[in-house]
């Protein structure tokens, strides 16, 4: 190790320095987002098939459709999909749909309560918003809800009778997924019992590989599963209320900077690799897992 490298490592090993530099770079990216880059930076996926599938799923709804919104994101990962979820909800309300929100996780319930409050504060007709509360029991609760979906005491208006038939009474299920309950759980537990119910889903990017195979099988009719697909959808439908910048959320420049930093880490780590120096166990290709 050269003296220069040693000095650099010492500099970066100051507690909190390099995370501070990373956050500073992202902050600079956020401030300069839109100023630098122009057309060369674009979050919206040019391959807009996923956004088009979501639009098609909503186009297929009848007038005054009854849509079940299964709000089960994790509180920690919801910020990534918040703008997209709001855009889809706004899109549905704009098409005259009635929305019923239900949660099968406690964190999802917290998000659902906040989103319901936001929609009510925005002046959405209370007769088009139903609060079906929280159903415990994960998969068991989901299966029970296929035939028995009821509001928690005092959380739904009298017109709830319209949606009292369980999940089967709905024209579409929009699943906002998280780690515990998501589109996969719905595909496994609800689709076999209600094969005609169309299910659309919005999930954070990290769940995309796990959920995408269900799109190919037709168990999902639409899936927004990466920040680029989300941005393409946002670009298509316009800015929902309460989103900082609908067309570029979470921001092209800071995302680009962060991804380049991650690539630099990977590149540096891989470049420093000397396969010949590994242990015998580490070199064994037969049982790598």
């Amino acid at each position: 190790m050269t003296e220069r490298t040693s000095r650099r490592r010492g500099f970066l090993s100051v507690p909190g320095l390099w995370p501070f530099l990373l956050v500073s770079a992202l902050a600079l990216g956020i401030v300069l987002d839109g100023v630098i880059g122009g057309d060369q930076l674009q979050s919206a996926n040019p391959e807009a098939a996923r956004a088009a599938e979501m639009a098609a799923a909503l186009d297929a709804l009848p007038d005054g459709a009854l849509v079940l919104v299964a709000m089960d994101p994790d509180l920690g990962t919801y910020p990534e999909i918040r703008g997209t979820v709001r855009a889809v909800l706004d899109d549905l309300l704009g098409r005259g749909a009635r929305l019923a929100l239900v949660s099968f996780t406690a964190e999802g319930r917290a998000v659902a309560a906040a989103e319901l409050q936001r929609l009510r504060a925005a002046g959405v007709d209370p007769g088009r918003l139903f609060d079906l509360g929280f159903v415990a029991g994960a998969e068991a609760g989901l299966v029970l809800s296929v035939t028995d979906l009821r509001p928690a005491a005092g959380t739904a208006p009298a017109s709830f009778a319209a949606v009292a038939g369980g999940i089967a009474a709905f024209d579409l299920a929009l699943v906002v997924g998280g780690v515990d309950i998501g589109p996969r759980t719905w595909a496994e537990q609800v689709t076999p019992r209600l094969p005609d119910l169309p299910i659309a889903a919005v999930v954070p990017t990290f769940l995309h590989p796990e959920v995408a195979p269900y799109l190919r099988t037709g168990q999902l009719v639409a899936l927004l599963g990466t920040f680029r697909d989300d941005a393409a959808y946002l670009l298509a439908v316009g800015a929902p209320s309460g989103v900082r910048d609908a067309t570029s959320s979470p921001g092209e420049l800071p995302m680009l900077l962060g991804l380049l930093i991650a690539l630099a880490f990977i590149g540096r780590a891989v470049a420093s690799h000397r396969p010949g120096l590994g242990t015998a166990a580490a070199r064994e290709p037969e049982e790598p897992a």
């Binding site: 920690g76 990466t226 995302m255 991650a262």
Partner: peptide, 19 residues
Amino acid sequence: FLLVSRLALLVDRVGFLLG
């Protein structure tokens, strides 16, 4: 995918502090 997802959260959080 996980790195991209977590980066989006970090950007959102920094954006919250700045905005």
